[in-house]
Design a binder for these strands. Structure first.
Length: 484
RNA sequence: GGCCCUAUCGUCUAGUGGUUAGGACACAUGGUUUUCAUCCAUGCAACCGGAGUUCGAUUCUCCGUAGGGCUACCA
């Protein structure tokens, strides 16, 4: 049984790029029947915040990505929050082994010392490699410093391997020269494990078989592989995903505007659309299909069709896709999705209608929506306010024949005691007939005169929904207006 | 600077040792529609450059170039 993990750090709101990583892990789990683990990497005490962890859960809920194991869900490889694992001494235990086996050592160098070394390397145009000053300390010196207040870290002694091969599920083998890799910190001076260390211990102990993460981790991989080896664990298969870039082709970040997943939710995107869109960013199916529901994506997804090159995040296409998804919603589903996005003016308009008419109204304008809040621009046709209606109508000019058409329609339609769409259609047809079958000569003036707008949804639908009372009121107003 | 990854229309991408290099978004035009939108049709538009291998390279190799990543006691 394969096991994958999504391991975000709660140092900011869940990001579009991070979400894509989660999605690919999730899709992998669905496709290859793997266990999907959520692990919270909160070892950076200064930047990690509970509210960010909550934001991650919120995003996952919205995307309907449900972990099999995680901080909330539990599981037999827990705890799944690194700060809790620290408390349990999990990292310390492994670290002691490394220390005993002399694969790791204490370092007492100050930031100043290290910065100087780095500066020197830079001057000489050499890659920075730690001098290993502290590796040469004798046991007494180490014991002394350990007993003092001097701040210390534990560093990994990087072996001098000339060629370390990283095998990658997405690209070809990558060859690293470890003599170019500096000894790095395993245990930070604040007592917490560093990322490169904790990630290895956790992936090993949680028995992760496949690590699917961003390409920005490629250069970390040799370090992690070395640690796996030093610890005596079997490393997972790595798969490095291409990055998602902003419009300017640099790594997607906050300055590119909306990057938090919750931003998309609040802007009125459907999570189904984002899910579909993100799956296509870095992966492609064998045919030219672009719209997939979650179930088919789970079966079609495959690791061998992941692309190697970075992708620009194109909101325009996401918007289009969102429109596709909006159009595929049922009347009731659309109405549910749209309601939270209605503004005060829209709510005021809709308050005059019954629950089922509200759904019909919303459904009638669905073709105009790319984002859910777009709805607010399309409800004016259904405004029952007589004042607002009469004001607008007064702004229009009508020819004599237009007046005739309108008055004619009003008279005929009001003969029905019940305004149904059939009745409205029938009435329209009669008037059209009288006007040599010219639909435009009938529909346009009727819309202008009875709604006060030049465009909007299907006029028959609007008139039907408006109902007899409103129509009758408007008809008498028009009678008066046109008779002068 | 060093190390690493990548390179097909503006964008997301398919694809091949010989193809009219395919699809989608966007854009343009036309059609459908009472109008906007939707929908449909059509069009515009790409193999980063140079060598090499080969009868033939967009495809394989090398070198450039460009973009991206890493180069932390951040993940």
């Amino acid at each position: 049984m394969k096991r994958v993990r999504f391991a975000p750090s709660p140092t900011g709101n869940l990001h579009i790029g991070t979400l894509r990583t989660a999605l690919f892990n999730w899709l992998f789990a669905k496709r290859y029947n793997a266990t999907y683990v959520l692990r919270i990497e909160d070892t950076d005490k200064a930047r990690s915040k509970p509210e960010y962890e909550d934001n991650i859960y919120e995003g996952m809920d919205w995307m309907e990505i449900v972990e099999d194991e995680g901080p909330k869900k539990g599981g037999k490889f827990g705890p799944y929050r690194q700060t809790e694992r620290i408390v349990e001494g999990i990292y310390q235990k492994q670290l002691n082994r490394l220390l005993e086996e002399k694969k790791a050592y204490y370092c007492f160098c100050t930031d100043k010392d290290l910065d100087a070394e780095r500066e020197e390397a830079k001057q000489k145009n050499r890659p920075y490699i730690y001098s290993r000053k502290c590796l040469r300390l004798n046991p007494d010196e180490i014991a002394d410093k350990l007993n003092s207040e001097i701040s210390r870290t534990v560093k990994f002694e990087v072996p001098d391997t000339k060629s370390l091969i990283v095998s990658d599920g997405v690209r070809d083998d990558i060859d690293f020269d470890c003599s170019l890799i500096s000894d790095f910190v395993l245990l930070k001076s604040d007592g917490n494990p560093s990322y490169n260390y904790s990630v290895v211990v956790d992936d090993a102990l949680m028995e992760i078989t496949d690590v699917i993460r961003g390409e920005d981790h490629i250069s970390n991989t040799p370090k992690q592989l070395l640690l796996f080896k030093a610890l005596g664990f079997t490393p997972p298969q790595y798969h490095h995903l291409p990055m998602i870039l902003g419009q300017d082709k640099s790594k997607l970040s906050k300055r590119h505007g909306a990057t938090a997943v919750t931003d998309y939710e609040s802007q009125g995107y459907l999570s189904d659309a984002l899910y579909n869109f993100l799956a296509l960013l870095g992966w492609s199916p064998t045919d030219t299909t672009e719209i997939f529901d979650r179930a088919s994506l789970s079966t079609l997804f495959s690791m061998d069709r992941i692309s190697k090159s970075n992708a620009v995040f194109d909101v325009t296409k996401l918007k289009w896709m969102n429109g596709q998804y909006i159009r595929s919603l049922s009347e009731s589903a659309l109405s549910e999705k749209v309601k939270p996005f209605l503004d005060d003016a829209s709510n005021a308009i809709l308050a005059e209608y019954s629950e089922s008419d509200v759904s019909k109204i919303i459904y009638s304008v669905r073709d105009n929506l790319a984002l859910l809040p777009d709805i607010n621009g399309y409800l004016e046709s259904f405004n029952t306010s007589f004042e607002s209606f009469s004001e607008k109508v007064k702004g229009f000019q009508f020819t004599d024949s237009e007046r005739q058409v309108v008055l004619d329609f009003c008279k005929n339609i009001l003969e029905y005691s019940d305004i149904t769409s059939e009745n409205v259609s029938k009435t329209m047809d009669i008037i059209v007939e009288k006007n040599d079958g010219k639909k435009g000569k009938v529909f346009k003036p009727i819309r202008k005169a009875l709604i006060g707008l030049e465009r909007g949804p299907n006029i028959v639908e609007i008139l039907t929904l408006l109902g007899r009372e409103n129509l009758s009121k408007r008809a008498s107003f028009l009678n008066e207006l046109f008779s002068v």
